[in-house]
């Protein structure tokens, strides 16, 4: 058994700077859920096969269960809790509610963050683009139909908001 030295990390989580000494045998998902109390990031499989733990690292969706904790160092991380201020809903969240894209809710945070990354680089994705973007996020409840519809609705909402500014 090796005695592990804590590894010092500085990263930005949901806009706030986080400085921690982390045990390298932990994963990003453990730090988020256990140390930072960000339980919106869910663990569904622990091996990158379900996408429930999707977070954005430097704007890209990544499975938090596949990232060693020290790899957070120097990165900017967004979790579902950081998508909007406490009492607001992001247009993607509104769209998920309106389109009926939420059932059990366990895939929802990861799905919404994946959608956010997609819409950040493609403001008007077609169905194929949406399905491709969420092809690493498993949902066992919805058949994806209303999730795809919600993401396209969110694109329209964002475009309308853009237009009104």
């Amino acid at each position: 058994m090796v005695e592990m030295k804590p590894f010092k990390i500085i990263s930005k989580v949901n806009g706030s700077t986080v400085e921690l000494g982390v045990n390298p045998g932990r994963r990003l998902i453990d730090i988020l859920r256990e140390d930072l109390g960000l339980t919106g990031t869910k663990e569904g499989c622990g091996e990158g096969e379900c996408g429930a733990c999707t977070v954005l690292i430097n704007g890209r969706p990544v499975n938090a269960c596949l990232v060693l904790a020290p790899e957070m160092n120097g990165k900017e991380i967004i979790t579902i809790e950081g998508l909007t201020p406490e009492d607001e809903l992001h247009p993607i969240q509104e769209a998920f509610l309106e389109a009926g894209a939420v059932q059990c809710g366990f895939c929802t945070p990861g799905m919404i963050l994946t959608a956010k990354a997609l819409l950040d680089k493609n403001s008007d994705p077609d169905e194929k683009a949406v399905k491709t973007a969420i092809s690493g996020n498993l949902c066992r409840c919805t058949g994806y139909v209303k999730i795809v519809a919600a993401i396209r609705l969110a694109a329209a909402k964002l475009a309308a908001r853009e237009g009104s500014i």
């Binding site: 090796v2 592990m4 590894f7 390298p24 045998g25 453990d30 020290p70 160092n73």
Partner: peptide, 10 residues
């Protein structure tokens, strides 16, 4: 939790 190891970030 994973097995213990030392970690380096050169």
């Amino acid at each position: 939790m994973l097995p213990s190891f030392n970690y380096y970030q050169p």
